[in-house]
Design a binder for these strands. Structure first.
Length: 321
DNA sequence: AACGGGCACAACCGCAACTCA
DNA sequence: TTGAGTTGCGGTTGTGCCCGT
């Protein structure tokens, strides 16, 4: 036996709320308070589902809501909390008085997450033509990546052609190599049964110091005699965007940032057992590349770190936990 | 001016968690 | 303890507006 629906769907209105409906809902709640959402529509004379009423009230009508653009402080709070909480927008919203989870969710989806790019397999997934076109052509309204394209991009995980691996530093128009998806690193099984995966990190960096950031990463990857490897895995990706290709050896028992390393002798160019987890935890700034325990933290200033927004880590951190 | 694409935001949906009899 | 009812969360979709071509 199926579960009883939350309300009778038939005869109920959907879509945009009218002023009249808003007024009915406000008046009812002001007079009676919030009780049972299920019975509220009937009592208030609304042809709406209780859930719809609740959502309308919580996200739009209650008078303690703050309207308008997010301040820089709020944005920083969202970014910071998203790093640790992931997409739990309700918890994030609890730290931002007057803001709703829906508002934050929309803001994250439409603004903040566009500042970074998702991982994609370096070798398996071709970059959609529309994205190449968008990045390479003259700026339209925005140089950022749209939701629709990003979604299409993220969902195109069934394509398995192999794009050319090229590096084209200082050329902002053609150095698109591959793409990666953070939440779903492609894994493949080798003949000996070990797992390996490869990913690319797309990053959008802001400001005129883009070249500095680019060189920072490149330098990090060239430390300890792995000369030229930086160029092999770093590409300038267009205006204020760059791409980092990572091949990861996931044969270790667990994904753990602790043993990130560069191994030029390995058939795969660079090895990091946990590129995804480490990136999401900002560990890319502190990679102990050669595993000698040397602290690399001072390679980056806080200001530099702040220029890069990392994608959600919720899925990845849960794998480590 | 018309059209198409991208964006922002409101609203919906499915499901898990919670409550309570 | 159990299960039905309710609430809330996170993901997704719909829609109108804006801007570039």
């Amino acid at each position: 036996m199926g579960r009883k629906p939350c309300c009778e769907k038939t005869g109920l209105k959907k879509g945009k709320w009218t002023e009249e409906e808003d007024e009915k809902l406000i008046n009812y709640i002001k007079a009676n308070g919030i009780g049972s959402w299920r019975s509220l529509p009937k009592n208030a004379g609304l042809l709406r589902c209780g859930k719809s009423c609740r959502l309308r009230w919580m996200n739009y009508l209650r008078d303690d809501l703050k309207r308008g653009d997010f301040t820089r402080d709020e944005e920083e709070t969202i970014v910071g909390l998203h790093k640790t909480l992931g997409n739990r927008t309700t918890m994030i919203a609890s730290h931002l008085p007057g803001r709703t989870d829906n508002e934050i969710k929309n803001y994250w989806n439409s603004q903040l997450c566009r500042k970074i790019y998702n991982f994609r397999s370096i070798s398996e997934y071709p970059l959609p033509k529309d994205m190449i076109k968008m990045i390479n052509t003259t700026k339209k309204r925005s140089s950022r990546v749209g939701r629709a394209v990003a979604k299409k991009y993220n969902n195109s995980t069934n394509s398995h052609s192999t794009p050319p691996r090229t590096t084209n530093l200082n050329n902002t128009s053609t150095s698109i190599v591959a793409e990666g998806k953070a939440s779903d690193p492609l894994e493949s099984t080798s003949l000996d049964g070990s797992l390996s995966s490869s990913s690319s990190l797309f990053m959008e960096v802001e400001g005129k110091e883009f070249e500095d950031i680019f060189m920072h990463f490149k330098n990090i990857l060239e430390i300890d005699g792995v000369e030229n490897e930086g160029e092999n895995i770093m590409s300038n990706y267009g205006d204020n965007e760059m791409i980092m290709h990572i091949e990861s050896d996931t044969t270790s028992e667990k994904w753990d940032c602790g043993d990130c390393r560069i191994n030029s002798e390995n058939e795969s160019t660079n090895v990091c057992s946990s590129p995804i987890v480490s990136y999401f935890n900002d560990e890319a700034f502190h990679w102990d590349i050669d595993g000698d325990g040397e602290d690399l933290t001072n390679l980056w200033t806080q200001e530099e770190e702040d220029m890069i927004v990392w994608p959600s880590q919720s899925n990845e951190t849960s794998k480590v936990a």
